[in-house]
Design a protein around this nucleic acid. Structure first.
Lengths: 196, 196
DNA sequence: GTCTATACGGCGATAGAC
DNA sequence: GTCTATCGCCGTATAGAC
């Protein structure tokens, strides 16, 4: 099965590249860095990929397709508003757990990469993410699950930022599970930190 | 007054460099970019600075000295625990308003720069910031202002992340003042978004 | 699928004239 | 304080052998 072997080696190299892009940044990672980490020479990478850009392109597109399919599941469900918000938060922390490098690359490089026509889909995905959260929060306010006086746009930004920025310090397999972090975060988000 | 003229031109160049470092990243900004933006040639920059590194070094040290002096004021005050937390949050959003480039550079480049011995103080400032917030939150729990069951470490991370990451979307002079953002954020943080 | 060898441009930085 | 001119290194990418 030659196709599978090819795909596996390619995916292996993409995984190595993703780790380096996440740790050192896209621009700051050289093709020689990637080749070194893979135990081959830099020229050999071009047997698998057109360019360094096409590597990060592949990494981001694959990850985002998965992530947004998960959000769509939540939106399409008939759970109540509060449950949908909880599910969306939990699946985001789960995504950080399962694809920390991909999340970090998106967080750190989307602004820079978004400037190139090739990565125009990053802005589209950003708008799509905004739509998901605005829909969930608006539904929450209208159903009475959330405070009526909430600034929905600002709340969306706070949730988005706080959830994804956790990729900076969360380490899969560390002392704190992504489920425990999601629990704590939802408690703070929904009920606040002040003594009632 | 030759000293003032020198200092002014130097500060002007640092301001231009800070904007570019914040927008494009430190590594991704060339000395030619900085010189172009200043209307001079790249070689001329070296009359004012030893290296590109020394520019970002100066930018970060100046900003952090100011910021931590402000935190120290809050810590040393005899306000109650909740007021201190509110003041610390508000002054952080004010810092984003007044020094957005410097905050962005610190947020985006601290990890990378921290790897060089010259920037060892970044890790120290990070620890200092942690001490400030852990002190404030612990005081809050002990005084009864905050929930007794709070995970103080996790709460510290959420506050730190959510406050500073606002530099990604906040624009000074835009429709939303930094005071209004701080108000909204404190409401969410202290009382949550759920309908009581 | 990997290696050898190399092209070619952009990078930070320097020396000395003005 | 700025310009002219340039150095040496490192970056991505390519061509063809194995």
């Amino acid at each position: 099965m030659p196709e599978q072997t090819t795909a596996t080696r390619r995916d292996e190299l993409l995984g190595i590249a993703a780790r380096l892009f996440a740790d050192k940044g896209f621009k700051n990672t050289t093709v020689r860095d990637i080749a070194d980490a893979a135990g081959i020479l830099s020229g050999s990478l071009y047997h698998h990929f057109d360019s360094k850009e096409s590597m990060v392109d592949d990494i981001l597109q694959t990850f985002q397709a998965e992530l947004f399919a998960a959000y769509d599941d939540v939106l399409a469900s008939d759970d109540d508003a509060r449950t949908k918000i909880e599910r969306a938060v939990r699946l985001s922390f789960a995504a950080i757990d399962q694809n920390p490098h991909e999340v970090a690359i998106f967080q750190n490089e989307a602004d820079y990469l978004g400037g190139f026509p090739r990565f125009g889909y990053l802005a589209e995905r950003n708008a799509q993410s905004r739509n998901v959260w605005m829909t969930l929060l608006t539904e929450g306010v209208e159903s009475g699950a959330l405070r009526a006086d909430l600034d929905v746009t600002l709340t969306y930004r706070f949730i988005r930022d706080t959830v994804w920025v956790a990729v900076r310090w969360y380490r899969p397999g560390g002392g704190l599970s992504h489920e425990a972090i999601a629990d704590q975060y939802l408690t703070i988000l929904l009920d606040g930190i002040a003594h009632e």
